[in-house]
């Protein structure tokens, strides 16, 4: 599709949507949000670019296959769970730095992993559909 309005709007809205998704990811562990929903929002941003500029632009922009995002995300989420196990506690037990804060901790890594898995999965499907 070649529409000047869509292309111009996408540049603005696409970037905003991505920022919003990162905000949702960040606030996820104490407020509504989180990795899953953030990835859905981010995917809509990518979908906009796919519609306006075509799947090739997105593929080039990503540099890596979306499948790698899924793999990396799975590994990151599991790694976040393993941190608790190394400390002789049940799998996925939250570990925070510094230990009293609730800012940075394994739940954030877990959520980031979820974000990557969901985003990777949606992009895999989206790009394959657009290219076929």
């Amino acid at each position: 599709m070649t529409s000047v309005i869509l292309k111009t709007a996408t540049r603005l809205v696409g970037a905003l949507v991505l920022v919003l998704s990162i905000y949702l990811l960040w606030r996820g562990h104490h407020a509504p949000g989180g990795g899953f929903i953030a990835a859905l929002v981010a995917a809509t941003g990518f979908a906009l670019v796919v519609l306006a500029e075509g799947p090739g632009v997105v593929r080039r922009g990503l540099r890596i296959r979306p499948q790698y995002l899924i793999g990396a995300g799975l590994a990151l989420s599991m790694g976040a769970g393993l941190v608790g196990m190394i400390r002789q506690q049940p799998f996925l037990t939250g570990v925070w730095w510094p230990s009293t804060s609730a800012v940075a901790g394994t739940p954030l890594f877990f959520d980031t992993g979820v974000f990557l898995v969901v985003l990777g999965a949606i992009l895999t499907v989206l790009l394959a559909l657009e290219e076929s």
């Binding site: 499948q67 790698y68 793999g71 590994a75 196990m85 506690q89 799998f91």
Partner: peptide, 24 residues
């Protein structure tokens, strides 16, 4: 508590992640 229970779930997902990263 027994972390033994997580391994039958964790290992397949770890393998899945590894085989995705080894796409090529």
């Amino acid at each position: 508590m027994s972390n033994l229970l997580i391994y039958p779930i964790l290992l397949p997902f770890g393998t899945a992640a590894a085989s995705l990263l080894l796409w090529r």
